[in-house]
């Protein structure tokens, strides 16, 4: 307890009041509303075949997109930290665009780029790659939305790694691949996982970009937030609440799991 500095009661009181009003009370209200249903009604609303298909898609597409982000994020971070080349600073500044650009704009643009006459679609669709109104399209926008997370968590770690560990490994006879696997990867693994978790969480909640590109077909390209909105627009509030509660619980559980894995790998890394 710091006894010299002023403002403890005021700042803490304000923070707790705001968090209670904005966060705790609304979450409790949502749970109470969902609890008004009997267990059988709740299951019928939140665990119907259509609802289950949206959870699979939301979590599946987010996991795939976050994995892709781990791979290309690692590549981008590596290139931006280790190599000096023409346009490096420009590329580095552009990485943050998905954070700054409204996701609705991203959804709009990618849906039109990937249709039959679009800039990308005219080449991809003859190859059988159907980007717009498909699950693939959902993954594309989720990769876009989550791209900066992995790059920005891995970059500082790579910058702080001095070359001497790698040099030592090389001196001891390790080839580049062995150095990569046994020296670099363990050092960046925790930050890769943080990046994965952030990108994954963002993907599960994402709505604004997905509605443009997915076509929102039940059982096929409908994600959980879209189903919540569909139920709301039918005035089925209890159903919307139940699906929302399941979505919140599932995302908190999966985030806790990823955080636990991350802490474990951080312990092994140190």
């Amino acid at each position: 307890m710091n006894r010299v500095l002023p403002g403890f009661a005021v700042s803490l009181g304000y923070t707790i009041t705001v968090l209670t009003a904005l966060l705790v009370i609304p979450l409790v209200a949502l749970s109470i509303k969902a609890a008004e249903l009997s267990p059988a009604q709740f299951m019928a609303a939140a665990w119907s075949e259509r609802a289950r298909s949206t959870y699979y898609l939301s979590f599946g597409a987010s996991a795939v997109a976050a994995s892709i982000n781990v791979m290309i994020g690692m590549l981008l971070a590596w290139v931006l930290v280790r190599y000096d080349f023409w346009g490096r600073r420009f590329l580095d500044a552009l990485i943050d665009l998905p954070f700054a650009l409204p996701t609705a704009v991203a959804g709009l643009v990618f849906s039109l780029l990937l249709v039959k006459n679009g800039w990308y679609g005219q080449f991809l669709i003859p190859l059988g790659i159907q980007g717009a109104y498909s699950r693939l399209g959902i993954i594309v926008v989720l990769v876009f939305v989550g791209l900066p997370f992995v790059v920005r968590t891995v970059q500082p770690v790579l910058e702080s790694l001095e070359g001497d560990t790698e040099e030592a490994a090389a001196m001891l006879g390790a080839n580049r691949w062995q150095t990569m696997r046994h020296v670099l990867l363990p050092a960046v693994r925790p930050s890769l996982m943080t990046g994965f978790a952030l990108s994954f969480a963002r993907g599960i909640g994402e709505y604004g970009s997905v509605i443009f590109i997915s076509g929102n077909m039940p059982y096929k390209t409908e994600i959980a937030p879209v189903l919540i909105v569909a139920r709301l627009e039918e005035f089925s509030f209890a159903e919307a609440n139940s699906i929302a509660v399941v979505l919140v619980v599932l995302s908190l559980v999966s985030l806790a799991a990823v955080n636990w894995l991350e802490r474990r790998s951080r312990r092994y890394a140190s």
Partner: peptide, 18 residues
Amino acid sequence: DVPFAISPVVVGLMFLML
């Protein structure tokens, strides 16, 4: 950190329920 973990659609729904 919780606002990062909740889907914005659910956020809107919560305030609707209040």
